[in-house]
Design a protein around this nucleic acid. Structure first.
Lengths: 141, 141
DNA sequence: TATTGTTATACTCTATAACTATA
DNA sequence: TATAGTTATAGAGTATAACAATA
């Protein structure tokens, strides 16, 4: 019977663990005036020379149409800009502005510290173990 | 330095594993004419005598305001109904309609089979291991 | 007064597909 | 023709807070 499939418990645990994290993390991110996808984009661009929409979409796992909107809103906030390289004018680079870099440098460590409050309950071997499990899970998709 | 925090890799893996699952699962759910939150509510109500908004919100981890909208849409589709018990008229029960139960019985096993295609790559001991890891992760929040 | 649930507001994200411009 | 990205459409979920009704 379906209800006895052993992976159903796993799915529930995956959803709960992710939602618990997303909830904890998201509260903090919204306090900083960003949404989770916006924060994800900001962090992905941090400490890089910028990247195309294509690459950014793949890294953040959102579709290109959705990413356009997210980048639009970050641009309105003055945190990123679109740079058109002369050699290929159909793919441009998304780059953090100075304000974007400053925000990244300001809030990223703070957010890490905020998360660390919880994660320090795990010792390094536990972290490694959980990480291995997640990678194994990811690998089936 | 922040970037060397060991739990950052874990977070990335958690997000990627969840998103990979959500993507795989979500495609199928949308093909059935539902959204993920709607499916979650439907499955939570399946094989139960129904429950209050309060309980349902806690089980599905959405806020009560959001749940009202989700239940509204399921009600419009004729899949659930709100039952007002005479003894306490401020908290009512959300119950699957006949159509809702039928849909649940029809699509739940199909969805399970769809997921099983991927999960059968994991043997039971691996599933148990991953589940333990996820529960440990959940426990820190 | 406290609790349950709805409503109002305003926005963000999402999927999907058609479209434009460049290559 | 293929690729990169935008735009259009339409809907769903979200946070937040004020609100109504019941207890």
């Amino acid at each position: 019977m379906a209800a006895r499939e052993p992976f159903l418990g796993l799915l529930r645990d995956l959803a709960r663990a992710y939602q618990a994290f997303e909830n904890y993390s998201g509260v903090h991110i919204r306090q900083m005036g960003l949404t989770s996808p916006q924060f994800d984009v900001l962090v992905t661009l941090g400490n890089t020379p910028g990247m195309t929409m294509n690459v950014l979409a793949k890294k953040t796992l959102v579709t290109k149409g959705t990413l356009t909107g997210i980048v639009d809103r970050l641009e309105q906030k003055g945190l990123v800009r679109r740079e058109v390289p002369p050699e290929n004018r159909r793919c441009f680079k998304i780059v953090l502005t100075e304000a974007g870099e400053k925000l990244f440098e300001d809030i990223f460590p703070v957010h890490i510290a905020y998360l660390k409050e919880r994660f320090q309950k795990l010792d390094p071997s536990e972290i490694a173990q959980i990480q291995t499990a997640l990678q194994r899970l990811h690998s089936v998709f």
